[in-house]
Design a protein around this nucleic acid. Structure first.
Lengths: 160, 160
DNA sequence: CAGAATTATGTTGACATCAACTTATTTCTG
DNA sequence: CAGAAATAAGTTGATGTCAACATAATTCTG
């Protein structure tokens, strides 16, 4: 070990880094939902995306990207497999030609109706797993963190 | 809206799904660290990986994958760009020919030494951002969640 | 109202992620 | 000790992720 990189540094990052802990937890829980949803041919991300599109008015691409805290270009990419399967349709907005509306098709709704009980069951299992841990508090903390980070991002761009 | 897919379902998922909240938070914080580490040519994942390799004995591939809660094949892929840059070397284990040891090179240590203050500074900023929110408690909850999920995974495979 | 600034999105290239399948070694069993 | 079982990794193909750059449409300004 070099003097400027003691083992304690490794432990410092492992024990303190919220980013690392978040990536680990996100990957672990993502795999869990992927596995549960596999019979339906959906990944956890696809499930979240389809759910986000179930609204009275088909939402705008940018709005969905923001809701999912996802890069717009990533969302464009994620739509491709769903479009191919006919679960989603992308349309130009009637009023503003730049905008794209993400339309959940009837086939998309059918898949979603099948997926929902799977999601509920899987989530119940995770809540059980967490036991004494307050999963609602955890969710709220994550939501707050995402919100604060996105606020700063916007501020950085908007700053004079 | 269809009767079997009311808007309330969309809100149920948005408000309850721990998986969605985790992915959102992980993406947001990941972008933040990516941006901070960009001058060094490192992503947040590469930083975590290099840090994990800073040990007296070069760790085994499988052990690192488990530590990062990462699929083994993903880790193999992630090593490629770091190997190309000469920051990491993969060696066969002397004792067991199946095993691979992940060696952090001197160049890798140099980059890590540069990256550490950037990581500390970025993390301080996030702790400030969280304010009243207990970031240590959040980390511990995430760690516990990852642990429980991985425990179940192992059990499922090992089951008689 | 014409050109500039802004806004919303698309394209490309590099890397990240995982499942399913395959290969190489080691260990276990008879 | 030879074949079977188990273990550790590699390979392939599909998808997810983002930054940098480019395009198209709208709005703003003089």
């Amino acid at each position: 070990m070099r003097e400027d990189l003691p083992l304690s540094t490794t432990h410092e990052v492992r024990d303190r880094c919220l980013c690392l802990q978040l990536q680990r937890a996100a990957r672990s829980i993502g795999r869990r939902f992927d596995s549960a949803l596999r019979p339906l041919g959906l990944s956890h991300g696809q499930f979240s995306l389809l759910t986000a599109l179930n609204r009275p008015e088909p939402p705008l691409l940018g709005a969905v990207a923001e809701l999912l805290a996802l890069d717009r270009t990533t969302l464009t990419a994620n739509l491709k497999p769903l479009e191919r399967r006919g679960l989603v349709r992308v349309e130009s907005d009637a009023v503003d030609g730049r905008r794209r509306r993400l339309v959940l098709t009837d086939a998309g709704r059918d898949v979603l109706v099948e997926a929902l009980p799977v999601w509920r069951h899987t989530h119940d299992g995770i809540d059980d797993l967490l036991g004494s841990l307050d999963s609602a508090a955890l969710r709220d903390a994550l939501s707050a963190l995402t919100w604060e980070l996105s606020r700063e991002e916007t501020a950085a761009v908007t700053a004079p």
